[in-house]
């Protein structure tokens, strides 16, 4: 079966996110003063084959742990969809 994994990688809570802070300040300068926080991250769509949905999830989890995220500073979340 073909799957699409949709992965979001963000910096862990508590890890400093200079991009997020700078973008938040820029939004404030553009009068979006209601913005209290911006977190930056990465979004991936991974197309791959697996035998079942649970196997697809396991595979995607390994990809997140080994490559897509850096477990030292980042956390990830994902969804698996069938194509």
């Amino acid at each position: 079966m073909n799957f699409i994994g949709k992965v979001v990688v963000l910096l862990k809570e508590g890890v400093f996110d200079p991009q997020g802070v700078t973008i938040k300040n820029a939004l404030h300068n553009l009068s979006f003063s209601q913005v209290s926080r911006v977190r930056t991250g990465k979004y991936f769509e991974v197309e791959f084959e697996a035998d079942s949905e649970s196997e697809a999830e396991n595979q995607l989890k390994s990809m997140c742990q080994e490559l897509l995220s850096n477990p030292v500073i980042e956390e990830y979340s994902f969804q698996v969809e069938t194509e």
Binding site: P18, Q19, T22, I23, A26, N29, L30, T40
Partner: peptide, 12 residues
């Protein structure tokens, strides 16, 4: 810092 995109914030 080129944060977001290069030049994206400076233009404002």
């Amino acid at each position: 810092g080129d944060y977001l995109r290069t030049g994206a914030i400076a233009r404002f």
